[in-house]
């Protein structure tokens, strides 16, 4: 009896949870479906499922606006900024986790508080500096900005992960004669791989989707997918199949990455703040 009741309960919960999940996922699903329709079918919801499917929208988008170049830029910006941020953040997080001073907590707070500063407070000077140094619309310039933007979060996350590693192991490596560089490279980093992977993943997502600085500081050469999509705001926004195809292409890489690295993603999305 009890068993039957619990199975029935489980089925009810399953139906309910799937419904809620599908409702939340719907806008993405709808976008993907629409991208495989003709423009005419796309706006006619009543007959949406009774008409044919096509990849026409994709070929139009591809031929008109060089998707590959935007995507390349997105990849380079996301990976580049993440890589440099990690190189700077790992030693910092090590120091704060394993050689803390009296001011370490204040320092962490201060770093996080730099995230509190609205980008608009820095927009004008950065724009002018970029203009004067010829950094506008360059990959190097945007990588630097994205790196600085996410550095506090990366340091914070790595710090929380490093805190879980027993200090005795690092001390053992010191007894074994490892220098700081070797201690970080051979002992701490390999041990912290899960945490670093989560940090990396979250940072790639944040950098990929960053849409303030990339919109303000790029136009063409260094423009990532955020710009690619923004160019559809009008009047192409009226062409839903093409809009959907472009959108699908812009979000697919991150969705696929998230799909394959679910565990790291879940861990990363909690910013290391909740265990």
């Amino acid at each position: 009896m009890a068993r039957n009741a619990s199975i029935r309960r489980k089925l009810v919960v399953t139906a309910f949870a799937w419904t809620v999940g599908l409702v939340i996922f719907f806008p993405i699903l709808w976008t993907v479906l629409t991208s495989f329709k003709t423009e005419g079918d796309a706006i006619n919801i009543a007959s949406f499922f009774s008409t044919g499917w096509t990849t026409e929208a994709y070929s139009v988008v591809q031929s008109r606006s060089n998707y590959v170049q935007f995507a390349m830029n997105s990849v380079i910006l996301a990976l580049g900024s993440t890589f440099f941020a990690l190189v700077i953040a790992i030693p910092s997080a090590w120091a704060m986790a394993f050689a803390p001073g009296k001011r370490t907590k204040d320092l962490l707070m201060w770093m996080l508080s730099t995230k509190m500063m609205p980008p608009v407070g820095a927009l004008i000077p950065i724009y002018l500096i970029f203009r004067d140094f010829g950094l506008l619309d360059t990959r190097g310039g945007i990588i630097t900005v994205l790196m600085l933007l996410n550095l506090p979060i990366i340091i914070w996350m790595l710090y929380t992960y490093f805190k879980e590693i027993p200090g005795e192991i690092l001390e053992a490596s010191r007894m074994d004669g490892a220098s700081l560089g070797k201690e970080l490279l051979y002992v701490l980093t390999p041990m912290a791989i899960p945490g670093i992977a989560s940090t990396l993943l979250l940072n790639i997502i944040l950098a990929w989707n960053e849409a303030f600085w990339t919109l303000a500081l790029t136009t063409k050469d260094a423009a990532p997918l955020t710009q690619f999509i923004a160019s559809y705001s009008s009047p192409e926004g009226l062409f839903w199949a093409k809009l959907s195809a472009a959108s699908t292409m812009a979000i697919a890489p991150i969705l696929v990455l998230g799909w394959f690295a679910q565990k790291q993603l879940v861990r990363g999305l909690t910013f290391g703040a909740v265990k």
Binding site: P166, E168, I169, A172, R174, M175, G177, V187, M191
Partner: peptide, 17 residues
């Protein structure tokens, strides 16, 4: 530490996992 010619066995063993 490594220049002192001493080895240490830690309470938690501190093995490199």
């Amino acid at each position: 530490p490594s220049k002192r010619g001493l080895s240490m066995v830690f309470q938690s063993y501190a093995l490199y996992p």
